[in-house]
Each structure stands twice: as C-alpha cells, then as structure tokens.
Design a binder for these strands. Structure first.
Lengths: 192, 192
DNA sequence: ACTGTAGCGGAGGCACCCCTCCGGTTCAAT
DNA sequence: ATTGAACCGGAGGGGTGCCTCCGCTACAGT
C-alpha cells in the first residue's frame, strides 16, 4: 500500500494528437480497442481494431507503435476512472463504500479478461496502475477493517483477485453473477 | 441436477487405437494437449501440440479430426477423474467432503483456462460433462445444505462458477490462492 | 517370412495477422 | 488562397496456424 493516488494516464507515453481528424481517429481507435480487448482478451487482432475504428492499419501503428502502447492506454483509462470513483465514495459507510467500489471495479473493467494477467505484470505501466489502484481502493478496505466490518486477515490484493476472477467468469446471466459475487463478499465480511 | 453420474469418456466419439504404435501416439497427443491447453487456453496451436507429442500433424488430425474432438477428450478425462473423486469422498463429514472435492476441482482442472469458456457452452459433450459433474458433485453440496453447514440460497452451478473463476486467476503463489478460496468458501458456509 | 493395411509424417495451399513503407490527402497557419 | 507539414490508407513481405493429401513405414495376422 503505497503513497498517494496519481493519474496514471500522465505516465503513459502516447498523447492525443492536436489536429482534428487525427484526434477523431485516436478516439475511435481507443473505443474500438476497448471493445476488442473486452471481447477477445489482450491479444485481439490489431487489424480488426483498425477495421472497427474505420481507420487504416497504418494509422493505428502511428498512434500506438506497439500493441502494448495501445493496451496500456486503454487500461490506464479504466484505472483512472476507478481511482476517481474511489474518491467519490469517501463519505459513504465503510462496508457500503467498499462493495460499491468493487461493483464498479467489476462492471467498469471492460478489459477484465486481460486484467487478470495484468495484475501480475511487474513491468512498467502495469505496476504504476496497480499502485494507483491500490492507493485509491486500498483505504476503502482498511477503513472497513478498522471499523470491524471486514475481516483483518486479508489484504487488498487478495480481494481484487477474488473479484477479478469471479467477474471474468462466464455466468448464465447478470443475476447469477451478482449472487455469486455477494456470496463471496459475505466471506469477506467480519463477525462470521 | 439430473439422474445418475455416468462415465463421460464413453460419450466422446474418439477411441484409443488398437495398434501399439498408434496407441502410444494417441496417449502422447492427449498428454501434450493437456499441457498445451493448460498453458495457452483452448486455442493453443494444434501444430505445437503435435510437435510436443513428437508426432506429425497428420497423426493428430487422424485421431482428432477437429480441435473440438481433442479438447473434448481431454476435458472428459478430467471430468471423469472428478466424478470418481466425488464417490470416494462419500464417507467424510458433509462440509469437509464438499471443500475437499472443490479443492480437487480447483487443482485438477488442468484445462482450467479453457473450462471457463466451456462452462457455458450449450452443445453436445459439454452438456453431458456438466450433467455428469453435477450428478457427482451436486449431492455433496445438497448434503452440506441439509446438514445446515452450507447456505441454502445457492445452487451447485453458482458454487462451481465461483470456484472456477477464482482458480482461473493468476495469484502470487499457491498460498494466496488458497487464502482467497477459503475466504470465498466462508461466504458459502451457513450460520454466520 | 510374407503381405495387406492401418497408420505415419510433413509438404503445400489457404487464411489471417504483424508491421513497414510511401504516394496521396487534409488540415491549419499564414 | 496558398502551402507545407502532419496525417492518412493500404499494399505487400514475412511469419504462423489450419487442414488436406499422398507416398512411405511398420505392425499384426497368417
């Protein structure tokens, strides 16, 4: 659990271009990439992403020289949104704040299939993202633990992996997913 | 939760050949496939599997005409082992029997990355495997529920998906995995 | 030992993906 | 309106995977 949260996007190298058409393409690519990564995981086809964005493959490579650059940018956007959400939840009750954030984590992570792998990636931006996320969400767990509503014998990493694993699974419907998630979170709750 | 458990392997179309060399190749292919699926998921390269088995690609296709045939056979083997395990656990305490089986489920699922996708596949063999597995493992949950040690507001499908999701995730080490799994199972426990 | 046949391996055609490169296009600053 | 720099698309070469096909091999039954 490190220092303070910080905007991950500023660490990512790629920048949104200034020219109007270029900026439009950049945005289209990010949107298409978000979709494709959510659908096929981190190794979705780059040519397919360019097609979805209605853009030539060359344009994709100019904006994001490597697949990693593209994935990192999408991923960093998600993490930033999560960090902002954590701040907004600061005034709720400890347990409610924690579960609300985890819900957001589960729903917001469009890249969730890939996130499972990213959670263990030691290098570069992923480490920074993880620190950012831990800095933002970790206090929510600590607060719940100090308030005695969350068990003390687990850390934030345990919790994130649990939720990430469950939400990355295919369920019959959203209701089943929520049911299972609630049951697992019952195990996190303190006082038996 | 249907009728009685039945050996899934008998449903799978492919059969082990009679000739000595052919049988050896068949086994080598299954072993290599188990490895490759565990490592790269359900879309591992078939040519790589043939290479690992020290066998020509033609031999692979003769034994398993489609990728699906191969995957189904590997998967059915795993399911059969799980079914056998369930029978052997019949004389333990309800809760212990259930968690012991789930442990086996988690550890045995060498094909775990692929199973996640397979678990909601409606077609043919997967349905049969699911029924087999539900018939074998379902009673363990029911017994625990009747004994009042497992919560009644969930079914076996919920439980399997929860465990499958968590075990498909990458953890720092086995200890963390067990810790998280135990926490989630605490949520399954009744009488909190 | 002989021999018919089940089984073998891998070359090759097709499809898809990665990434580079460059002639043509479009923006925005003057 | 002009213009040049930034940006665009996609052809194309290299790589890999899928699957078929067929000449060769080695087993098993006599």
């Amino acid at each position: 659990m490190t220092a303070t949260p910080f905007p991950v996007s500023e660490i990512v190298a790629t920048r949104r271009p200034h020219r109007k058409d270029a900026a439009r393409n950049y945005d289209a690519l990010l949107g298409a990439a978000r979709e494709a990564f959510a659908e096929h995981g981190a190794d979705a086809s780059l040519e397919d992403i360019a097609r979805r964005a209605g853009v030539g493959i060359g344009t994709l490579y100019r904006n994001f020289p490597t697949r990693r650059d593209l994935f990192e940018t999408v991923y960093a956007d998600e993490v930033n949104a999560l960090c902002r959400a954590a701040v907004e939840l600061a005034d709720r009750e400890p347990w409610e704040a924690l579960t609300a954030w985890l819900d957001r984590f589960a729903g917001y992570m469009v890249t969730k299939r890939a996130v499972r792998e990213a959670l263990d990636d030691e290098s570069g931006i992923f480490q920074a993202c993880r620190e950012s996320m831990y800095a933002a969400g970790g206090p929510l767990l600590q607060r719940a633990q100090r308030a005695g509503v969350a068990r003390a014998d687990m850390d934030f990493g345990d919790l994130l992996r649990m939720v990430a694993g469950i939400t990355a699974t295919a369920f019959e419907d959203a209701a089943q997913r929520d049911r299972v998630l609630a049951i697992a979170l019952d195990g996190v709750r303190a006082g038996r």
